[in-house]
Amino acid sequence: MIDEVDAVELFLLKGASIKLAVEEANSNPRVSRSIAEENASVKASVSQFSAEVRDNAVMMAEHYKLFYMLENDIRRLIDDTLTEDNKGPDWWDKYAPDSAKIEFKGNLQREQDAGFTPRSDNPLDYVTFGQLGDIIRANYSLFGGILSNQKAMGRVMFSLNNLRGPIAHCGLLAEDEVDRLKLTVKDWFRLLEGPK
């Protein structure tokens, strides 16, 4: 019984300690003012654009979020599959096709020359969406148990790559293309159901 009482008292003390730390952080006027000033600055910048541009940005942000999640999920699938299938974490050197290696080197060099902060240690984060499809195709024997059909995978990746253009380059998707994006995402997840 003493152990339970001690555990409850310790829990309450830790909770009180955390509460004080949170209250202290929230009451720091310098931090609160900094966040408020940053938000006000962004709002002031956004308000300078026309209502039409702001409305389009809100609409396209939803498509960008969907594509962002999908593209990064595909990157993870590739990395996990090639890492776990006895290729190890160094699979890139042996199993990435030359097109992906060239794309990686070019994008990395361009960012280094511009003095940008490296976006990642993973070469996959530097390749375009088209190269992700090339990597899957080049190693399809490893993805065949995950994806239901190689031809269908190629069609889905082709469609996604075409839809990616207006999304990634601040264009607008026509209503038909919004429908196509939704259907193609469904097609991707159907592919992930594996061979039947």
Rank of each mutant, 00 (worst) to 15 (best):
N107M: 14
F129S: 04
D98M: 09
G130Q: 09
T117I: 07
N107F: 11
D121G: 14
G130C: 13
E103H: 05
T128M: 09
F104D: 00
F129Y: 14
A96G: 00
E103K: 07
Q109D: 09
A138R: 13
D134M: 02
T128E: 13
T117R: 13
F129C: 05
I102L: 06
I135G: 03
T117K: 14
V127I: 15
L124V: 04
Q109I: 06
R119N: 01
F116E: 10
T117V: 10
Y126F: 11
Q109S: 09
D134K: 09
A100G: 02
R119L: 07
D98C: 00
S99K: 09
K101A: 05
R110W: 03
K105Q: 07
D125A: 14
D98W: 03
A114P: 05
N107G: 05
T128G: 13
P97Y: 03
E111L: 08
Q131E: 15
A96Y: 00
F129M: 12
D113S: 14
I102H: 04
I136W: 10
S120D: 06
E103F: 04
A96M: 01
N107I: 12
T128K: 11
I136A: 07
E111Q: 11
R137I: 12
P97N: 01
N122R: 14
G133H: 09
I102Y: 05
A138Q: 11
E103S: 05
G130V: 06
A96T: 04
N139F: 02
A114S: 14
S120W: 05
P118A: 15
Y126N: 03
A114T: 08
L124C: 02
I135A: 05
K105A: 15
Q109C: 03
G130F: 07
F129V: 06
F116A: 13
K101P: 01
G115I: 08
D98R: 08
N139I: 02
T117D: 09
G106S: 13
G133Y: 09
Y126K: 06
D98L: 11
F116N: 11
Q131S: 12
D125R: 15
L124K: 03
G133P: 09
P97F: 01
A138S: 13
G133E: 09
N107Y: 14
D125F: 13
F116T: 05
P118Q: 12
K105N: 12
A100C: 03
D125W: 13
